[in-house]
Design a binder for these strands. Structure first.
Lengths: 212, 212
DNA sequence: AAACTAACTGCATAACTATGCGGTATTTAC
DNA sequence: GTAAATACCGCATAGTTATGCAGTTAGTTT
């Protein structure tokens, strides 16, 4: 039995969700709240398995609520359910720790399916939003010139904080040889400093410090 | 009618997929190949709407194939279907441009549902992989000390390439005042240079150059 | 042949970064 | 009162970065 919590200020929507979620054999709504504050004061907050969270709420916003939940009730899986389909809301919610993101016009079938998905370790996201999220992993195709393998290698080294001299020692070039490549990198990335090159290189998925 | 292409070196698997995909009213397999090279030489390659792509293929790998498709047939939606559930394969595939990622043990129902999802602008991903992908957006919780708002602001400025003096002018501090904060940032992030701070700040989702 | 390009190198120099050391002012706790 | 922590500031200095200018070598193109 998946225990569901709903945090949504519109009471008609809240009751509508409650009704069709409770209709499912394996789901039960154990708490339904008009605001985060109300939810956090309840006795059931730590018994919820999956929470459906609106973003635009009175008082504390849904995103702030996710931050709070992540800190105080980290085992609750939170799905955002909202009208906001802009990047800021999407990525702020994911950054805060939401595991799913649904547009409010989602069908009852899709909602219960999403709850099960989230409970089973998945990440239910409305399709066009999911595509938007996945697209952020794609290597940028809008650079006029691609960096060579050598340039990418050097950019990776820049991101580790190494000096030109240390990089040169590692790849068997003089300091000025390294600098020559770095000039090319800056030109291709249309930046003017090491800092900009690193930031842009990571943002455009040319390098990835977590995995390189 | 969604036109499907299959690129998979195991012929039994290929035929199995073909059979149940063709069984659907709205799906049809218009091409089935044992390798990327074979697929790219075919006359139907540019008619495919959704391609199911293995990663471990003879000759060109599936990920290299995605890179090629993205360049030559950018309208084809590619779903990886593979046994590899490690980060490198996942993120290399997404980086290359795959819109979906399925573990091979996926059920026939899930596969056809994924094809429709991808065709309709979504991003079908096996649940535990999707969760892993979404988790990369979460702000890191493993830092011993959180950066203050002021420190985050300064880190954002560092990533733009501004000098300490320019940053100080912007936020009404002396160069040495800025430097004082920067020392604190380095300490909290456990880094020793501007470059490392920027790379780590982006990786840990403390700052996001695309949106800041 | 000459011209062009890319990779590597060098030198000079101004600006910038990071470190060490020191300080003041304010707030909080004992 | 004292002590500790935080935010801001200052100075000196060595190391590093970025720019401008120049060069050599090898390969490719005209």
């Amino acid at each position: 039995m998946i225990k569901v919590g709903i945090i949504e200020d519109n009471e008609y929507m809240r009751e509508g969700w409650e009704t069709f979620i409770d209709f499912e054999d394996d789901l039960t709504v154990i708490g339904s709240f008009g605001s985060c504050e109300e939810a956090f004061e309840s006795e059931v907050i730590n018994k919820i398995n999956v929470a459906i969270m609106d973003i635009g709420l009175p008082g504390m916003s849904g995103i702030e609520g996710v931050n709070y939940m992540r800190e105080h009730h980290p085992d609750v899986n939170i799905i955002m359910a909202t009208v906001h389909d802009d990047d800021d809301h999407i990525f702020d919610a994911l950054k805060a720790g939401a595991v799913g993101y649904l547009m409010k016009k989602v069908t009852p079938d899709e909602m219960v399916s999403a709850i099960r998905d989230a409970h089973n370790g998945g990440s239910p996201i409305t399709p066009n939003i999911a595509r938007k999220v996945i697209a952020t992993f794609q290597k940028a195709a809008d650079l006029e010139e691609e960096l060579s393998e050598r340039e990418i290698q050097i950019l990776k080294e820049l991101a580790t904080g190494r000096s030109y001299a240390a990089i040169g020692k590692k790849i068997f070039l003089s300091v000025d040889g390294v600098r020559h490549h770095i000039r090319n990198i800056y030109q291709k990335l249309e930046v003017h400093s090491r800092s900009e090159a690193i930031a842009k290189g990571i943002s455009k998925r040319i390098i990835n410090p977590d995995r390189d």
